[in-house]
Nucleic acid binder design. Structure first.
Lengths: 213, 213, 213, 213
DNA sequence: CATGAATGAGTATTCATTCAT
DNA sequence: GATGAATGAATACTCATTCAT
C-alpha cells in the first residue's frame, strides 16, 4: 500500500507541522505518527524540508484551483468576493492544519522554495486585490485603503484556522455566511446583491481537497 | 553594563523568535545576535524556554496595562472599543516582533508556562468580549455572533503585525484610524460617536513599551 | 550484530565506571571504548544514568541468584556462611569492575533508581544477617555485635575487588578459602565443620555471570 | 577572616567530594556550600584538582602522624597492631568524609599527585605490614597469607567510614574495641596481651585532626 | 517495502577558570 | 577580600539522513 503509507506520512506531517511547527517536529515524531520507522519515511518523501514545501505548494494550488473554479465567469465583484470569502473561510475551517502550515511556516523554507510558495500566495492574493479594485471601480465597495483593507480581510478570514472547531455550534455554512457579511460591511457594501451558493462552495472545497466536509 | 547585555539578549530573542520561530532559533543564533558567547547568555536568562515565557508574559502584561489605562472611566462602548482597537493595532504595528511571538509561539511553551500565558491572553480578550456585549446591549453594535465577531476582529487587528511596515505610506495613526473604521463597519455601527484620541493611544503604547514611536 | 555492540557498550561502561567513576566517565569515553560514535551509543542504552542503574541492578541480581542457588537447602549456619563468603569473594575477585560499580556509584543514581538498588543490596545483606544470627543462636558463632560484625565482614570481603589480581600468586579458590577462614576466626568459630565446595561455587559464579573463570 | 573562609572551603570540599565524588561536585556546589561566589573560591584554593590532592595529602599525613605517635616505643606486635587498628577505626569513624575521599577518589588525581598520595598510602600500609610480619615472627599471629590478611583487615577497618554513625548505639571506644577483637581473632591471636589505651588513641586522633571527638 | 544500525553535525546547557573592578 | 561578567571547551543527548540487508 504505497499510497496508504504516503498519505499517512503526509497527514502526519501536516498535523505535526501545524501543531508544533516545522522546527518543533522531529523526523521521529513524523515516523511515529505515520506508524513507520524513520528510515522508511524516506521512501515516501524527499528531505523534511521538501516535504514541507510540497505540503505548502499543494495546499496553495488547491486553494487557487477552487478559487478559479468558483469565480469562473462571475462578473459581479460582490458575488466574486463573496465566493472567495466563502471558499477561503470554509477551507481554513475545514483544513486548519494545512492552512496554518501555509500561513506560519514560510520562514522555514529554503530561499528557492520560499520564492515558489510566496509566488503562489501572491497569485492568490491578487484575486482578492482585483475583485476589491473592481468593486471600488463599480462603486459597490468603499474603502480609502484598498491594499490595507485586503490584508485586513485576508487576515481576518485566515484567522478562522486558528480557532474554529467543528464541534462548536456553528456549521461551516453559518460561519462562511457570517464572514461574508463581515466582509461586505467592512467594505461599506450595503446592497450585497446575489449571495454565493455556500453548498456549492463546500462541494468545491470538498473536491479539491478530496475530503468529505 | 549589566542592563545593556540583558537588553541585548532580550531584543535579540524577540527578533529571532519572531522571524525564525522559537524552535528555529538556536542558542548560538541568540548569542551571535546579542554579541555574547553562548555561555555568557546564561548570565542573563534561565533556560531558552523561560526566556520565551518571560518575553510573552511581559508583552501581554504591557498590552493589558495599556488597555486598562486607556479604557479607564470610558463608558461609551464605541469609544471603549475604538480605544482597544487603536491600542491593539498600534501595538501590533510598532512591536511586531513581540506580538508575533505572543501570537505564534504558544505551542513551544511548557504546560505550566502555557497556562500562565493563555490566562493572560484570555484576560485581554475578555476586555473585547465585554465591550462588544455592552455595545450590543446598548444597541450600537449589531452582530448575530458576538463571539465569532470578536475572534474575527481580533485576528484582523493582530494580522497587522504580519505585514505593516513603518517604511510604507501609512502612519500609525492612519492605520489605527482605518482599522477603527473597519471594526465599526463590521459591527454595523453607523454612528461611531466620539473618536479615540490616537495621539494619546500612541503615547500610552510608547510608555508601556518604553519606546519612541 | 546487535548483541555484539550492546555487549561492547555494557562492557565498556562497566570498566570505565569502575575505573574513573560514573561522573568521571564521559559519553565520548564510552563511545570510544565501545568502538561506536557517541550517537550510536544511544541505540543500545537509554540515558547514561539508566545504563548505570541497569548495570548495578543486573549485578546485584546475579549475586542474589548465585547466593540463593548456593545456600538452597543448606541448614548448617557455618556451611551457609562459608558458601556466602566464597561466592562473595569469588564474585568480587572475578568481576571486580561490576562489583566496584555497585559498591561505589550508588551516589550517582537518581532517587528512584537508588531505591531499587539499595533494596536489592539490603535483600542480599539480609542473607548474611540471617545466617550470622542463626549461627549465634546455634552457639557456633560468637560476637557481641552481630550487626557490626556483619558489616565488618562484608566490607572485608568486598574489598577484594579493590586489590585482587588474577596475575598474582593466589588462585580464586585459595583466596576464597583464606577469606572463609578469616571469617570463621572473626566469628570465634573454632570447629568450622563441613567446608564449602569451592569448585561448585566457582561454577555458580561462572554461570550467573556467563563468564569462564 | 581569611582562615574562616579557607576552612569553610576545605570543609565543604571534603563533604561534597565524599558524598558526590570529585567529578560529581561542581565548583558552584563548592561555592554555595562555602557561602562564597565561585570566583572568590579561587582566593583559597588552586585548581579544583589541587584542592583534592591537598585534602588527600593532609589526611594521610595526619593518619601517619597519629600512627607514628601512638606506636613510638611500643615493642609488642599485638599492642602495636591494636593501636594501629584503634587509630584507624576511630579516624575512619570520626572523619568519614576525609577518609572516604582518600579511599575513593584516587582515580581523579593527576599522575603526579597520584604518585605522592599513593606513596603516602604505601608508607602507612607498610606500618601494618611490618607489625603483622613481626607478630608472625614472634609466633603471636598466625596466617598463611600475611599480605592478603593485611589487605583484608585494612579493608574491613576502612569500611567503618561507609556505615558508622555517631547517632547509633556504639561509642567510638566500643567500636574500636570490637574491631581490635575481630583483628586479633582473624590473626589467630588467642592471648591478646596488653590492650591499647582507647582514650589515648581518641585524644591522638583529636589532636592531629584538630577536632573534638 | 521496510528497517536496524550507524553517524557527523547539531542541540541546549554546564564546566572550571580568569579578570577587571 | 570579593564578585559580576565573561568564555572556550566540555557536557549529555538528539538531529536528519544514509545504507546494507
Amino acid at each position: 500500500m504505497v499510497v496508504d503509507s504516503r498519505d499517512r506520512v503526509r497527514a502526519a506531517a501536516v498535523k505535526l507541522f501545524a501543531d508544533k511547527g516545522f522546527h518543533g517536529t522531529g523526523i521521529r515524531d513524523l515516523a511515529q505518527a505515520a506508524k513507520l520507522s524513520s528510515a522508511s519515511l524516506y521512501h515516501y518523501m524527499g528531505t523534511k524540508e521538501e516535504l514541507l514545501a510540497d505540503i505548502m505548494r499543494e495546499s496553495l494550488e488547491r486553494l487557487l484551483a477552487a478559487a478559479a473554479l468558483a469565480t469562473e465567469g462571475v462578473e459581479d465583484p460582490r458575488l466574486r468576493l463573496g465566493k472567495l470569502v466563502a471558499l477561503h473561510v470554509i477551507t481554513h475551517a475545514s483544513q486548519p492544519s494545512e492552512t496554518r502550515v501555509v500561513d506560519n511556516e514560510v520562514h522555514a523554507l529554503s530561499p528557492a522554495a520560499k520564492r515558489t510558495i510566496v509566488g503562489l500566495r501572491d497569485s492568490y492574493e491578487l484575486l482578492w486585490s482585483e475583485v476589491i479594485d473592481a468593486g471600488i471601480a463599480a462603486g459597490v465597495f468603499h474603502t480609502g485603503q484598498p491594499a490595507v483593507t485586503r490584508l485586513a480581510l485576508l487576515e481576518m478570514c485566515s484567522g478562522v484556522a486558528r480557532w474554529y472547531s467543528p464541534r462548536g455550534t456553528l456549521t461551516l455554512d453559518q460561519l462562511a455566511a457570517h464572514y461574508a457579511e463581515l466582509v461586505m460591511r467592512a467594505l461599506g457594501c450595503l446592497d450585497v446583491g446575489e449571495q454565493p451558493d455556500l453548498k456549492h462552495c463546500r462541494t468545491l472545497v470538498s473536491q479539491v481537497w478530496s475530503v468529505r466536509i
